[in-house]
């Protein structure tokens, strides 16, 4: 698979911070159609990294290539048009006075003719399930609904890459699940490349690959299963400990040793069920078929 993003030796230092650089010699590639999660605790530099890729920060050293275009002051708009970004705070990225105005914002910036805009706005809102809210003002929407509108704004301009910068962290569980389901669907049906910066274990589990950033450096790069296998240490990486890992630890403390490595809930359930049935003299009967 071709690389849609290439990052070489990227470094960045905030102008007001005298201390360590926010990004320190980071290199990685993103393949087209991939879902990449970037994790790290707050202040690790992961959001800075996302902004640098979109040309929102003038990085001091290194190179970023997006869709074959090297990011410079001259090409920044070419790069940005390939990327849609959703940020953490639902309120602070809602530009339009109403839902439909907000979805249209990106299209207006691209000077899309009005007739086409009307069609695209309606389709995008349909896509995220917010068509009934087209005329509503943002103050009457929940955080989850606002983030779905932000997603519609991106669907409308159809970029190749979607960057979620902690986009679900301020939502309630329902809002978060709805948002994740939508992103998964877009990832699959539109061949959208997704980069999600997150603390959420479910969001990270959706990824094909996880990068771990700490103190401005890229410290680890692996599959979710391999990353999650670190169990209790994950909390230091800015992720929650997966439930199965917590359970495995609790079982080990009681002298029961589950299989090593990361287990999905289904795998863990199967193993426990097998072990319990095999050890039982009279196998328990399923109450449900």
């Amino acid at each position: 698979m071709e690389n849609i993003i290439e990052v070489h030796q990227l470094s960045y230092q905030y102008p007001d911070a005298s201390e360590r650089p926010a990004l320190n010699q980071i290199s990685f590639d993103v393949r087209a159609g991939e879902w990449l999660a970037i994790v790290g605790h707050n202040g690790s530099g992961k959001s800075t990294l996302a902004k640098a890729i979109d040309g929102l920060l003038p990085f001091t050293e290194g190179e970023v290539i997006v869709g074959g275009v090297a990011l410079t002051a001259d090409t920044v708009w070419q790069v940005r048009h390939q990327i849609g970004m959703i940020f953490q705070n639902p309120d602070n990225q809602f530009v339009g006075a109403t839902v439909e105005d907000d979805v249209a914002f990106g299209l207006e910036n691209r000077q899309v003719p009005r007739d086409q805009m009307i069609k695209q706005v309606a389709e995008a809102l349909q896509r995220v399930g917010m068509a009934d809210f087209a005329q509503r003002a943002p103050s009457s929407l929940s955080g989850g609904q606002k983030q779905r509108v932000a997603l519609a704004g991106i669907v409308a301009v159809a970029p190749k890459i979607l960057i979620l910068d902690e986009a679900t962290s301020m939502l309630d569980p329902q809002g978060r699940q709805a948002m994740l389901a939508l992103v998964r669907e877009l990832h699959e049906t539109q061949h959208l490349t997704v980069i999600s910066i997150t603390h959420d274990i479910d969001e990270a589990a959706s990824a094909n690959r996880i990068l771990v950033v700490d103190d401005g450096r890229l410290v680890q790069e692996d599959s979710p299963a391999a990353i999650f296998a670190q169990g209790e240490r994950l909390i230091e990486l800015g992720l929650d400990v997966p439930f199965t890992a917590k359970l495995a630890t609790a079982l080990r403390q009681r002298g029961i040793t589950p299989p090593s490595g990361y287990q999905t809930t289904a795998e863990m359930e199967e193993w426990l069920w097998q072990s319990l049935s095999n050890t039982s003299a009279t196998p328990t009967k399923p109450t449900h078929p």
């Binding site: 979109d54 929102l56 990327i83 970004m85 940020f87 990225q93 530009v95 914002f105 910036n109 301009v157």
Partner: peptide, 9 residues
């Protein structure tokens, strides 16, 4: 930042 990311020049 959000406006710039959405292509506002």
């Amino acid at each position: 930042i959000a406006m710039e990311a959405r292509g506002y020049q």
